[in-house]
């Protein structure tokens, strides 16, 4: 698979996502945490790099400064939903993925490792 450009995967209708909450999705075998905020959609890896548990989709969504965030439900480290960067631990980050809404359906495209 590596090196192949991956395509967009339809995940669910937009209406299935509650504003201010995340869900987990399985995209090409990868666990993705998908979030809907008041104005936007975001996708990052579901895996919490600090604990190795696949739980980020179950964190509380919010903001820090102007950045949209999710806090890990295990030990509350906060991640910038746009970049995947951990705002509490320097050097820690999760992958972010592309996400869009077309015709009422949410689609995700995995980004290759940086």
């Amino acid at each position: 698979m590596t090196g192949q450009p991956r395509g967009w995967t339809v995940v669910c209708p937009l209406t299935r996502l509650d504003p201010g909450r995340g869900v987990a999705a399985l995209v090409d075998g990868v666990q993705v945490a998908l979030f809907r905020t008041a104005a936007d959609l975001f996708a990052i890896d579901n895996r919490d790099p600090v604990t190795d548990a696949y739980v980020l989709s179950r964190g509380i969504v919010g903001s820090r400064g102007g950045a949209p965030t999710v806090a890990s439900p295990l030990h509350k480290q906060t991640y910038d939903l746009r970049t995947g960067d951990c705002l509490d631990l320097p050097g820690v980050a999760v992958r972010w993925h592309e996400v869009r809404c077309r015709a009422g359906l949410v689609e995700v495209r995995l980004r290759k490792e940086a």
């Binding site: 201010g20 905020t37 008041a38 964190g59 509380i60 969504v61 919010g62 903001s63 820090r64 949209p68 965030t69 806090a71 509350k76 906060t78």
Partner: peptide, 8 residues
């Protein structure tokens, strides 16, 4: 803002 894991 939009809240966080403390206030929500």
């Amino acid at each position: 803002g939009d809240g966080c894991d403390i206030c929500k």
